[in-house]
């Protein structure tokens, strides 16, 4: 089988990292950073998601090029949905909402 076998040690390390990041994001939320609260929260969430994706879901080790193509296209299409919808909502005159 071409599938890569990941060492348990790495799994535990990722697990600890994810738990720590959860604690950090919950803690930081109570500190007033202005608009950066949202940015920090989403950055940490993305970091966690990337860890899960790369190590738990083996994206880092897979030999299949298609897997990353699928992941990237899914995110790209999500971006299309969000960006073009926002194109409407951010330019609507006030009062309509």
């Amino acid at each position: 089988m071409s599938e890569h076998v990941v060492s348990t040690k790495l799994y535990y390390a990722i697990w600890i990292a994810l738990l720590v990041l959860t604690g950090v994001t919950a803690g930081v939320a109570f500190i007033d950073l202005g608009p950066f609260n949202t940015i920090v929260a989403l950055t940490i969430a993305t970091l966690k998601a990337v860890l899960v994706l790369l190590f738990f879901m083996h994206l880092k080790y897979t030999s299949e090029k298609m897997t990353s193509v699928v992941v990237i296209s899914a995110l790209f299409w999500l971006l299309i949905l969000l960006a073009l919808s926002l194109a409407d909502y951010t330019t609507r005159p006030l009062g309509v909402n």
Binding site: I80, L84, A87, D88, T91, R92, P93, V96
Partner: peptide, 18 residues
């Protein structure tokens, strides 16, 4: 085809810029 959907909504009250 995924970039054009709102042309169904031109007169529905969406932003004219969009």
């Amino acid at each position: 085809g995924f970039l054009v959907w709102a042309h169904h909504m031109f007169v529905a009250g969406m932003s004219i810029y969009a």
